[in-house]
Amino acid sequence: MTPLEIDPNIARRYREPGAGVFDPALGSRNRWGGIRFLKTPSAALATAILAFGILTAIVGPILRPGDPLRITGEPLIQPFVDWAHPLGTDVLGRDLFSGVLFGARVSLLVGLSVAFISLVVGVLIGAIAGYAGGWIDWVVTRGIEIFQTIPGFVLLVVLVSVLEPSATTVIIGLALISWDAVARLTRAEVINHRSREYVLAAETSGVSGPRILFGEILPNIAPTLIVTASIIVASAILAESALSFLGLGDPNAASWGSMIGSGREQIRSYWFPTVIPGAFIVVTVFALNVLGDALNDFLNPRSNG
């Protein structure tokens, strides 16, 4: 930039204590944010687990080709004995390792799609209601209230059983019972930010409504929404597993929940067909929750002690 001609009166202000003195300690934190985040041990561990999970979901079918629901060996082989079936087989002789690999696929697909859909829908509806106010807000608030009145899981069970059970209906059903929480949160945050001075300042300088909402306010509530997204992925995985456990999931795909459901009959004598897939659910959801907590600490530093 070429140096501008500066009025001497203005130039003298450079020397003032209030002006032009930067504290290097404060530095810009945005550039190296990602790396600093991964330096937290828990965040690094959780990210590693999830990255591994996503990787197995992608390459799993290459590793263990073939339908995980077909019978491949003797029934109820114990885990860690037979290298052809490292995690053993279930009562019908289906390989548990293949099942677990395919289950990762279902869980992550469902979790991520539900989070994506309910985030897009919830943020849009909540943000518009919070910013517009008036009757739009009134209608949306009542709508959210109604969705919070109907027990989500009961509604989900009814919907999935009424429609044909498939991955798509499960995802749509879960999104239908998850969007309201996002909308409620977004609405509250937008209302909170709408009266702040930086928004008023943008308004007085002629910035248009949509630009204020999406350019000024949303970047400020994004951290909260990112944390919420990780919670939705986790709870969608839990709900999907419960659905397939009840036998209401996609009958043509192996999933962790349905494996537990079919292992349940032998629970008195054989623990592993129930315990192994359950352990995978717990580890995955745990990693997501650790990630959510770490993101929260990182993005909203004041919120925790």
Partner: peptide, 14 residues
């Protein structure tokens, strides 16, 4: 144009 009271609140932190 307008100048507000709280310089910590009147600038978008992002």
């Amino acid at each position: 144009q307008m100048i507000f009271q709280d310089p910590f609140a009147s600038l978008n932190p992002r």
